[in-house]
Design a protein around this nucleic acid. Structure first.
Lengths: 218, 218
DNA sequence: AGACCTATTCTTGTATACAAAAGTATTGAC
DNA sequence: GTCAATACTTTTGTATACAAGAATAGGTCT
């Protein structure tokens, strides 16, 4: 498997970084990565340029590409922005959401619930993403939906950790229920508040987790 | 002036697109651009990859790079998101803003006012950017500040147009005053509301402008 | 021994060469 | 004249080659 294939390199590399193969600060060796993907340095460098703007990778001239995993502070900030973006989505969606979308939302929530009962984490993540994605779409603002989806994806690996907390999954489902009810009633502010808290609590839980890890290390 | 220089190509190209040299849908010819910058296709293609993620350029495989200027609908959506982002910044900044930052804010506003009186559009844009940038920073969330600044920059060329409206500059200054007062009082919601409206009205004015241009063309 | 300078090696940045796909023009048939 | 098929041209995608900066190791002087 030598050459004649690329185009998906950026995505594959992104996946590699997301999945935690590389730690923060790791240098990405061009020749090694090129070998790994079975391509030359040219397309690999193009992929790195792509990744640079999304913040996953920092390109230092004449030095190389370094993995840039967000630290605890930056993560909290990102969760805060996510909470606000979702709140806006909810506020707009409360007025604009269609009946079919509401049906889909209930279906996604149902599937979510089943995943919780079956303790199927993968299915839960999938359905949870669907749930949130529907709300983004129904904001009626496709630019907003796009930005929200982008950040959601970026935070996905960190959301995983905060579900370790006992009872968090059940609480999360209750919050989903509340969100759906608010959207059904077309209640803009309650929907926004519910979604903001739903996401913000994830950031807080994450913070708690980090703090507990840190104090345990001391 | 042949080779040995790049690194800034992405920025220069971005500037070229921003300044309106290329229209929506224009194809960016790699060899021509490479010649124009005095480099080979390799670094130029890397620059294009960079620009692709920010949405300025669409890369269609085996077809080439096409300029992607947002249409009226997308612009309105972007202004809507900008308004919400700034509102969040204001809400957070109202609690966290420092005295020195408030002083700077007043200074920026003063300079803005002077630029209006001198009818110096360039100075106005510069000071206006400074004004908003301070609020982003004072949100205390650097990720948020970064995202807000990014979108602000992207919308900059379109803001220019809506200031043609008679009296808009003076109104804008009054809105700035109101924002500063709310921040001084630490009034989170009023500050958020004031800033949201301040930005949202820009989107509406822009919409009016587009509509008038369209009806004039018929 | 430690600091400094130099030679060597490694890695990035860029140009060029070539292959494959898309686009264009020319020819021929109806 | 229009359509289709084929040859030709243009342009993208990728590999490779080479140049220059950064890192490193080895040696020298104090």
């Amino acid at each position: 498997m030598e050459h004649r294939r690329a185009d998906t390199i950026a995505e594959e590399l992104e996946e590699l970084i997301f999945s935690g193969v590389y730690a923060d600060g790791d240098r990405l060796d061009e020749v090694r990565l090129a070998e790994h993907f079975g391509v030359s340095r040219t397309p690999l460098r193009e992929a790195l340029q792509r990744l640079a703007l999304s913040g996953l990778v920092e390109l230092i001239p004449r030095r190389g590409a370094f993995v840039r995993q967000p630290g605890p502070v930056e993560l909290l900030e990102m969760f805060e922005v996510m909470a606000e973006l979702e709140a806006v989505c909810a506020r707009l969606a409360a007025r604009r959401i269609s009946d079919t979308a509401l049906t889909e939302l209930r279906a996604a929530n149902e599937s979510c619930q089943q995943a919780v009962e079956a303790r199927d984490a993968d299915a839960y993540y999938f359905e949870n993403e669907r749930f949130h994605s529907i709300i983004y779409q129904q904001s009626g603002n496709s630019f907003l939906a796009q930005e929200a989806a982008k950040l959601h994806k970026r935070l996905q690996p960190f959301r995983r950790q905060q579900l370790r907390f006992r009872g968090r999954m059940a609480q999360s489902m209750a919050e989903h229920e509340e969100i759906v009810r608010a959207l059904e009633n077309g209640a803009a502010n309650p929907a926004a508040e519910a979604l903001r808290n739903h996401v913000a609590v994830q950031g807080e839980k994450f913070h708690q987790l980090m703090a507990s890890l840190k104090s345990a290390a001391e």
